[in-house]
């Protein structure tokens, strides 16, 4: 997993609420057995007519060249529905390192963190403030300070993340390294549970 410290980039606004993981990556693309190459199918059915890359839907934000950057900003309850981690993989593979929303679905939040994509939860008012910005406006996200700023106006907000996950993200460690390091504790738990 890649470490995450600060991110300072333009963003892609997706002002839709309740974006479910079936939209992020439709089920028919889940037949792969590796984690790679999902970015080209990100939001597939919102991006193209007739599932055809030669027919982009011009009104969809990923098809509007003025919008680019490593941050996706989306309406509330982002990532609801299916637990498919393919959703986080496709967001990462497309080139996003952070998703900003006023509310995240639980499983998606975990999946994102486990792949080095930072979910940044802001207030609804701050989210709307970001949506009002233009395509050349930049956001900066500082994980250490747990702070997101709209560079142009200087408006900022703090966001939550637990200390453990923060350390993992800052250093690029993952949970499995940690769990393997406490195997002894797990074995003694098993032993105690059998005899209780």
């Amino acid at each position: 997993m890649k470490a995450f410290t600060v991110l300072d980039t333009t963003f892609v606004p997706l002002s839709i609420e309740n974006v479910d993981t079936d939209q992020i990556i439709p089920a028919r693309f889940l037949k792969a057995t590796t984690r790679d190459g999902f970015g080209k199918n990100l939001f597939r059915d919102w991006r193209y007519f007739n599932n055809d890359e030669a027919q982009p839907k011009p009104e969809f934000v990923l098809n509007q060249p003025q919008y680019k950057g490593e941050i996706l900003v989306a309406g509330k309850n982002f990532g609801c529905g299916s637990s498919r981690e393919h959703a986080a993989w496709s967001i990462l593979d497309y080139g996003f390192r952070a998703v900003v929303s006023s509310f995240f679905a639980d499983i998606f939040k975990n999946n994102a963190l486990n792949n080095g994509v930072l979910p940044v939860q802001v207030s609804e008012a701050f989210l709307q403030e970001i949506f009002r910005e233009g395509s050349d406006s930049k956001l900066s996200i500082n994980l250490k300070e747990q702070k997101i700023t709209i560079n142009r106006t200087g408006a900022s907000e703090n966001f939550d993340i637990n200390d453990y996950k923060k350390t993992c993200m800052l250093n690029g460690y993952d949970d499995i390294d940690f769990l393997l390091s406490i195997k002894k504790d797990i074995e003694s738990y098993e032993h105690a549970a059998q005899h209780s």
Binding site: L179, L180, I186
Partner: peptide, 22 residues
């Protein structure tokens, strides 16, 4: 409860997951 693939790997490796109490 449902988990993502990284967590599936965690359970394979350690029979445990990391969860904050809901």
């Amino acid at each position: 409860f449902g988990i993502g693939t990284s967590e599936v790997e965690m359970v394979f490796a350690s029979q445990c997951v990391l969860q904050s109490k809901p």
